[in-house]
Amino acid sequence: MANSDKLYPRTGDTQTVYLKNVISRPNIEVGDFTMYNDFVNDPKDFERNNVLYQYPINNDRLIIGKYCSIACGAKFLFNSANHTMTSLSTYPFPLFFEEWGLEKKNVTNAWDNKGDIVVGSDVWIGYEAVILAGVTIGDGAIIGTRAVVTKDVPPYTIVGGIPAKPIRKRFDDEMISHLLALKWWDWAEERIAQNINLIQSGNI
């Protein structure tokens, strides 16, 4: 039976991990069976190499659902990367509070806080895609290779480009509604195993 507590789900493959098993930061949550593949860096270094500018002072979270597929080099850029655009300058003066005699407690004024990054279940994030702070990606969505996702992505929608724009829906609206109600990713592993052929054939 499938076991999401394994680090490496494929015998002899150290480039692919079940992602939840390499996460240590409390502000990152990853669901069962979500996998990450990295043929450039050690996939165990996902937090350091792929989750960027996520500083504890912001309390921003990365939440990724179950059964997601994340390709090599996908990046999640958090709020500290967003230099403020509400002042006359984008220079992060509050970050250098000692240099300018500012209050340390106001350091987060250096950037705009756009919120958490939330990825639904059964999402495929393509090679070197970039997801920006504040974005929610719906269940079943597909993020194209090297897309830069600046806005929310509806469920079961394929997006691509810079900035990412919808290319098409994977299914018609009726089918999407059925799938969102079905939530097969919340089934017991035994039930999924019994229905893999139907899931793979697209037979709702």
Rank of each mutant, 00 (worst) to 15 (best):
N79S: 15
G144R: 02
I125Y: 07
A141G: 05
N106F: 10
R48L: 08
A71I: 04
R61V: 05
W124L: 12
G160Y: 10
V159S: 06
V130G: 00
T84Q: 09
T157I: 07
S121Q: 09
P56H: 02
H83W: 10
G31H: 12
V148P: 10
V159G: 05
F78G: 08
H83Y: 14
A71W: 08
L52A: 00
T145K: 06
G160V: 07
D32Q: 14
T90Q: 11
F76M: 10
T136R: 13
V123Q: 01
K165R: 15
N79V: 08
L95F: 13
V153L: 04
T108I: 15
L95T: 09
N106C: 09
I158T: 06
K66F: 12
V123K: 00
T157F: 07
S80I: 03
R48M: 04
E98C: 01
G126D: 10
T34G: 12
I142E: 00
K44W: 00
A164D: 09
G101H: 06
T86C: 11
H83R: 07
D38S: 15
T145D: 06
P92C: 03
L88N: 08
A110Y: 07
V51Y: 04
V159L: 08
F93A: 14
T90L: 02
Y55F: 14
I57S: 11
K75I: 00
F39I: 06
T150W: 05
G161L: 04
V130F: 00
A147T: 05
G101T: 07
T86K: 15
N50W: 01
D122G: 03
K44N: 01
R146C: 12
